[in-house]
């Protein structure tokens, strides 16, 4: 049985470059940062109106949201290493 292992400080393997962040290109933005244009609030959208739009992918997706998540069809689960 695997014992709980404390988080290692393995500098040889996990050495971070100067600057502190191992992933230079992925520095998170400052709290509350917004980049680019302001985008509209989507929560106020009427899903029934969206279903009447001429957008096949969205319409199918909305049908799944309405039916599939109620157990009528195959649903997605949380674990991402399988379906």
């Amino acid at each position: 049985m695997a014992e709980r292992t404390e988080e290692p400080v393995d500098e040889e393997r996990y050495e971070e470059p100067p600057g502190g962040d191992g992933a230079v290109g992925a520095t998170p933005g400052p709290p509350g940062q917004t980049t680019g244009e302001e985008l509209p609030d989507l929560l106020s959208l009427d899903l029934e109106e969206l279903r009447r739009l001429d957008h096949p992918v969205l319409v199918d997706l909305l049908a799944d949201l309405r039916h599939g998540r109620d157990g009528a069809g195959e649903m997605f689960w949380g674990f991402t290493r399988a379906f």
Binding site: Y14, A23, V24
Partner: peptide, 10 residues
């Protein structure tokens, strides 16, 4: 952050 994905150091 300690073992970055491929292509992340850019």
């Amino acid at each position: 952050w300690s073992a970055p994905p491929p292509g992340m150091r850019t």
